[in-house]
Design a protein around this nucleic acid. Sequence first.
DNA 1: TGTTATATTGCAAAGGTTTGCGAAAATGTT
DNA 2: AACATTTTCGCAAACCTTTGCAATATAACA
Lengths: 331, 331
Amino acid sequence: MNTKATLKNIATMLGISISTVSRALKDHPDISLETKKKVRELADLMDYEPNAFAVYLRTNESKVLGLIVPEISNYFYHSFVAAVEQEARKKGFSLIILQSGNDAAIEEANLKLCKLNRVAGIFVALTSETRDMATFDRIKSSGIPIVFFDKVPEDSNYVKVCLADREVGKLAARTIFDKKKKKVFALFGNPNISITRKRKQGLVDELKKLSPFIEIATATANNTEEALQATLDAVSQKNKPDLIFCMSDEILTGTIMAINKKGLKIPKDIGVLAVSNGFIPKICNPEITYIETSGTILGKKAMKTLMEVLEKGITKKMDVIESKLVEGGSI
Amino acid sequence: MNTKATLKNIATMLGISISTVSRALKDHPDISLETKKKVRELADLMDYEPNAFAVYLRTNESKVLGLIVPEISNYFYHSFVAAVEQEARKKGFSLIILQSGNDAAIEEANLKLCKLNRVAGIFVALTSETRDMATFDRIKSSGIPIVFFDKVPEDSNYVKVCLADREVGKLAARTIFDKKKKKVFALFGNPNISITRKRKQGLVDELKKLSPFIEIATATANNTEEALQATLDAVSQKNKPDLIFCMSDEILTGTIMAINKKGLKIPKDIGVLAVSNGFIPKICNPEITYIETSGTILGKKAMKTLMEVLEKGITKKMDVIESKLVEGGSI
DNA sequence: TGTTATATTGCAAAGGTTTGCGAAAATGTT
DNA sequence: AACATTTTCGCAAACCTTTGCAATATAACA
């Protein structure tokens, strides 16, 4: 039978003490080269890997990060997740990924799970249902840093990385103005989350400022299905809009389906402007003009921020990433 | 200062022994109701959670699963990941997700990471570069069960869940035959992985069997970009195909971009048939006809299989899920 | 040779939990 | 009251690693 690869076994087999083996493997200066060599050879042979659990138990430093997100299968999040995972691996961390499915109770359970797994830090995109930040506060005060991203709490008391959401709205407004659109139908996601409110405010305020003659109607769509329906309704009116603004990929998807269903042509019959990571816009014909929100960039930023928090113990901070307009042919 | 919530501290505060506290918390029959009550109350108050690392160290049973995938931001995998995560949580497991980015070396590193984290089991979709199964074998013989999915090793010596790939090909062939297409251009992914070969064989053989008059040309596209280019080339010939078959969403995406770029109309100018999870087909106009491959279903199956392996210690097994044709208007 | 410095190594505790086994206390039996 | 049972609990080892400190061995020096 194969002996388990532990310090103890290596030590016994070599007739030396556990501590010597431990130090030899870490290249501690106290240990003679000869011993180090012996130890390393046997360790390699036995395929020794330190037991992460024992290490943690002793050192209290875990190399695992938690990531809680409403759902992974989301146009934006999965690129965020991919980026964080990559960066994490570079730094020697692993990533535990949890989905809260827009349910505050599951979110809380996931948070507990992170605590249970003694993660070194957590990334969180809030549920649209999250009202109570108490659990987050408890986790935080128990010493586990949290970096909020995308769907962040409004309160400035946290560490967060997000898009310049108000700017996104303004940029959309300026684009609409430049393209001389007159009747806008704007679709937004759940109004409970701050990014929705900010994007909406940015868009509406800036549009008003730019011109008193641009009509704007807004509606809420919590998912692709609702966006499809809302778009259908909007374009079926006698006096239909000349541009539809979609706050997210989820919504854009529904809008496109609706436009296809109605047999309308973009941009001849109707214009489309979206906020997106670019994937869906690029497979449309013509390509959709969009304001880019890159999950990859945000992910890298988030990881960097977490590392800072871990090192310097910051507890409040807000990082914002800019976004830019990518022109397709949809307006 | 707040005392840490550990068995020891609870024990001291209550003036009883650690073992009693431990057993009380697990509702062990040896402990009196009175004691249990006391213990539970204090534990609740202190927000006690067993230290997962210590538990593992003692029991050697971890509640964490590993998942290694070429990349999460893939049309198919992220729904798989989402499904596995959900099922895992139901069973009290957490999921560590790693990406190997189609690099066999990173794949190996990820495997080590799983071992290091002492996961209870691993899900793996192979890289197209993976040749050497030695590391997998070592992990397996070290007692960590591996369930391969989607991109699985050919050899029957493993536990795997996958689509009925040959059937997928055949179904495509029958559809092409039924729709009376005469000149097929079929795009496949990396030929090193078995699903490619199987789908291709299924399609080609069945097509030959059904009719000697259907022409079929095949090409390889390793990513969306290559698919775009290959499609562009194919439709630019004097005698262009009347149907394009796309083996995956990645490829379908490229094909659609190419068709859009060329200004061709589906299905009038050219037909399209894909293997897909349905998302992209549904946002096209007309919707693309596709053979469904559900990451969600496969994910659930994979989790179920892993649980079986964990319980019964099976070491070889192959589960196959059927797929069906979903008609759009693209043929 | 005795003394001191330096290079190597080992001891033992700690981290939090689980669990077999034995001890003590409570209850039941005659 | 003496004994047998049953109920309730504690002891201590084990899981594997890290690390401060003490111990030993070796070399250097006077």
